[in-house]
Nucleic acid binder design. Structure first.
Lengths: 351, 351
DNA sequence: GCACTTTTTTGGAGCGCTCCAAGTTTATTC
DNA sequence: GAATAAACTTGGAGCGCTCCAAAAAAGTGC
């Protein structure tokens, strides 16, 4: 019997002439097994090629996976997270916390339609849900009865959430530019659905973002407020929505809003494409056009010139999120601070 | 009974007045349950707040996790992988393949001593082992009787492996520089153990790398061969070992080998620190010193000036590794090509 | 209404393990 | 060497699920 099957605890016990429980103890609590018995068991295990208890059994019995799951935001895939500067730093923070806890970090795949299934089936002890989580996902997560944290979305007092003060960040960015004397803006917003850039020029009736998460609207509010302070209306500012990583983002802005002396973005990633395009077209930054990023990623410090950006502690956010999952405490809603980091991409407009 | 416990299949069956098997079918093979029964079961599930079969039971029963595990190279932690340009692209490739397969990517944590335990306990269907895997890890992986692939290490014909032709890459790099007329070199090698940079100056007896994986020695061999072609000996070239991401790497090279007109590195990451340090010291690249990177990461294309580097298809490598794990076929040893990408950091030495 | 086919439903078996209360062996004390 | 304490072992219970052979129900044809 038990020909080529992989051996189990029971097989080892049989060969060593001890019970399953003792074999289990040899592997998990060796101190409470007499040494001669332990050696006998180890010999039997070796002979059978048994390398320790199968995690499947343990998992069922203990109910613990020792892993935490990270779900990419929105419709994004795992690969998008690794691709984006923001996503990378976020995952870095989470992974730091996992390293410390000796836990595994599972990047859970799933498109919109498979997402709830993914949550239901993920082999994890808790979740971090990327921003913009819709209500279905939250319900799924709650059903799993596992701790979870939502990023950049406030889902009420019963749900853990961590977000930055996006409104204030946006406000700081605009004020910085208006103080420098800028009056002609373009806004590069994030399209959260897939597809080509969408251009919203002023004048057209009420403009609505085609894709956009609460956090995007919050930032837009911040921009609006800052503009209102110098009696400008955001309704007069062109807004362009591009998906994250859209390489043409910069080109669309320059084509559609040539009069802009200042470009406000929703991410460093977008701002970087603007810088790239400016270089390509011979537009001087910041002399011809000022650009402000958002996020304060490491990349932003390395551009030429270095990017002025609304910085947040992304790594810290990931870390904190993981810590909250591990802690599994009462729900908290945390708002993290933002800070305007002025570097080389902003200056007075040409007079 | 069953007060606050989470409900199980059996509970739902009891409420709906059907057997466990039927409830299971409602969730997994709904087509073979009569519709009125299905609705009854769904109602019962809803009433109990049951959101589908618990993955723990399924895992034990099916033996499948639908996940693949990635183990960072050597003594590195998950976070190191995300931090390094090379690691990121590798993980990106793996994640692309996982996205397509609908599988989860588990970044398995573990330091040297916990690594084998991590392998033993990881909830995955297969592994990708970062380069430089020692024999213990391979044995552990084999014991799991799970498919696995080793990166940048050839462990013989019984083990899946993927590596680049590092020797050739190194050779191409040196030849490029010797053709330009360089005769004074410094080599920046990778220290795979933790600690400060180690400087190996020529002349000292036989020099041995303190930390270094087979791939590092292979590249060194390539450098040696290229130098030999113009009758130079690698024994006369200073070698400096720094851990990946060591920010001082550039500084140590300029301090210790001021006469070098060309710096050979083992990674783009290292090369970038050299560029940063050159900028800081007012050393002009490539006029004063030429620098060659290794890996061909996306970062290398964005430095100022853009980095000349030995490029490989990192994303493709990750993808292929995942594919091999999923395929679970007979062992293969794959050697991927490298290519010298000449950009702006190499030029003739000042005459 | 009967015999027969097809569609549904059932419940036992078992996946591999760890916990724990109870039982057994060994050591210590007087 | 009996009594007591300490150290070690045992094996049943159960984690939640899916498969599958067999039973039950429903459908079909005459």
């Amino acid at each position: 019997m038990n020909h080529s099957k992989t051996p189990t605890l029971a097989d080892v016990g049989r060969v060593a002439g001890v019970s399953r429980g003792t074999v289990s103890n040899v592997f998990n609590h060796p101190h409470l097994v007499r040494s001669d018995v332990r050696e006998r068991v180890e010999a039997a295990a070796h002979q059978l090629g048994y390398d320790g208890p199968d995690p499947r059994g343990r998992v069922l019995r203990d109910g613990k996976f020792n892993a935490i799951g990270f779900l990419p935001p929105g419709a994004y895939a795992i690969s998008d997270v690794v691709r984006s500067p923001y996503g990378r730093e976020l995952v870095l923070g989470v992974s730091l916390a996992c390293d410390e806890a000796g836990a595994t970090l599972s990047l859970v795949s799933g498109t919109d339609d498979t997402r709830t299934t993914a949550i239901r089936e993920a082999l994890v002890d808790g979740f971090i849900l990327g921003h913009s989580v819709d209500i279905d996902l939250i319900t799924s997560a709650q059903r799993r009865r596992l701790p979870f944290v939502i990023l950049e979305s406030d889902a009420g007092p019963d749900v853990n959430s961590i977000r930055i003060d996006g409104r204030k960040g946006a406000l700081l960015a605009v004020r910085h530019l208006t103080n420098l004397g800028h009056r002609h803006f373009a806004i590069l917003s994030v399209r959260r659905t897939s597809g080509p850039p969408i251009v919203h020029m002023p004048g057209k009736a009420k403009r609505r973002l085609a894709g956009g998460f609460p956090l995007d609207h919050e930032r837009l509010d911040g921009f609006a407020q800052g503009l209102a302070e110098i009696n400008l209306s955001i309704d007069d500012v062109p807004i362009i929505e591009t998906t994250p990583g859209e390489p043409a983002a910069g080109a669309v802005v320059f084509d559609q809003v040539p009069e802009a002396t200042a470009i406000l973005t929703m991410s460093d990633w977008q701002a970087i494409t603007v810088l790239d395009e400016a270089l390509r077209r011979g537009i001087n930054i910041p002399e011809d056009v000022s650009v402000v990023g958002f996020d304060g990623t490491a990349e932003a410090a390395r551009t030429t010139p270095p990017l002025t950006t609304v910085a947040q502690d992304i790594v810290g956010k990931g870390r904190l999120a993981a810590a909250m999952v591990f802690a599994n405490g009462p729900p908290q809603q945390i708002v993290m601070p933002v800070e305007l980091v002025v570097r080389g991409t902003t200056a007075r407009p040409r007079s």
